[in-house]
Amino acid sequence: MMNFAKFGNELYSGKRSFDIVGNRRRWFAIGIGLIILSGLLVGIRGINPGIEFRGGSEFTVSGISNPDPQLAHDALAEVNSEQVARVSTVGSSAIRVQTEELTDAETDELADLLAEAYDVPTADVTSSFVGPSWGADVTSKAVQGLVIFLVLVTLVMALYFRRWSMAIAALIALLHDLIVTIGLYSGVGFEVTPASVIGFLTILGYSLYDTVVVFDKVRENTEGVLDQSRYTYAEAANLAVNQTLVRSINTSVVGLLPVASILFVGAFLLGAGTLRDIALALFIGMLLSTLSSIFIATPMEVVLRQRDPKIAAHTAKVLELRERRVAEAEEDGLTADEVLAEARAGGLVAGRHLGQGAQPRRKTKR
């Protein structure tokens, strides 16, 4: 098995490469497919909002020995037969029962019935109420925070990279991560709580961080790309993705391991709803953000950048010169790969390059 460090060095030098940008249609098709699937999941199953968003009454029964949810359903049916309880286990000796809004009399009656059903003292049954206006305010603030975040991201990216194409590509990758995460969250059926919203906003920041690192390398590799005729803008951008690939994988693994541990502990051992909600959002989002920064953001930036007439003309010029060199070389008995290795400055094209020749030449500052 190849040493991972050696693998990373070969990717960075250009000796080994993957044509990620060249296969961008495939990645876009997969991304669009995931977005459509997420939309179907949300449309069919819907989003499961937590009590903080929809409002209602919540009861916590502690010190139980039999966490059978049917006991809670039967107790609620005696108080209000038109409602359906949402019952979840909290740890190994407690349950949480959520209902729609109940009157004070119904709340007291249900608390007594729950204590009787689970054979615990009445003091071990606590109740709370969240009004619908408070839930609507939380929803409004969450949407407001998301919109402000996306606007600021677009402006900061445009100012930092001085290219609107990078800002738009980063925004598309962010929206992809957000939509797919919400879709998978809907498919799993976990409640969307304020903790989930915090997780969503956190993964957007993580996605932005990973994308900025890749784009910074793209900017470095494509600086002065119009001043030479050995490689195209897309090829220079593809080299940048390969050079940051190992770093993206390492960062993702280091980030996902503790999040996976929190998710396992929160969901299966402690039954802690807050830990589970935020960990699931982080786990899905961090994985998606790593993939989107590689397969969505940079290929999309190349598509947008190639709409620039100068970049389009340069690409056509490079490809035309390359075909001419290949034709002339074949007459001299050389193979196309041998010519392309020289014409394309080594590693700027996946699978056809060796060593430090892959690196774009920089202008010497005097």
Rank of each mutant, 00 (worst) to 15 (best):
G46K: 09
A358K: 08
L114S: 11
K217Y: 09
A72M: 09
I64F: 08
V254H: 04
D177I: 13
L146S: 06
R45T: 15
G189W: 13
G187N: 09
F129C: 01
T211P: 07
L150R: 07
L304T: 05
F53W: 06
G347K: 12
T232P: 04
I198W: 02
Q356P: 00
V120I: 07
D108N: 15
G14S: 09
R54Q: 15
V197L: 13
V125T: 07
A350E: 13
T298H: 01
E235V: 02
G63I: 11
V84D: 14
L269C: 05
V259F: 03
Y12I: 07
L152V: 05
Y206H: 13
Y118W: 10
E301D: 02
A123W: 06
P121Y: 08
A111D: 06
F215T: 06
D68M: 02
T364F: 05
L257M: 15
A173F: 11
E342C: 00
E338V: 00
E116G: 06
F161L: 10
I262N: 02
G199C: 08
V147Y: 08
Q228H: 15
K217L: 05
I168D: 01
T290V: 12
L146Q: 05
V253I: 15
L174R: 01
V254P: 01
V120H: 05
T290Q: 10
L354M: 02
D308R: 13
V21K: 03
L275P: 05
R86H: 13
V84M: 08
S92Y: 02
L280M: 09
R325F: 01
T103Q: 02
R26P: 01
R324W: 00
V188W: 09
L178V: 07
D112K: 14
P121C: 04
G347I: 02
A158G: 10
G347Q: 11
T202Q: 07
S13P: 01
Q83P: 03
G346T: 12
L146V: 06
Y231H: 13
L291W: 15
R162V: 00
V79A: 03
G347M: 06
L291C: 12
L40W: 11
T154A: 15
G351S: 01
Q70F: 00
T181P: 02
E338M: 10
V138W: 11
E58T: 14
A279I: 08
R307S: 09
L178G: 01
R45D: 12
Y233H: 14
D216V: 11
E323C: 08
G8T: 05
Q306V: 03
A343N: 03
H314E: 14
T193Q: 12
T89Q: 15
A29Q: 10
L257V: 15
Y231Q: 12
F161V: 11
I20K: 03
R366P: 01
G205D: 12
R344D: 04
W27Y: 12
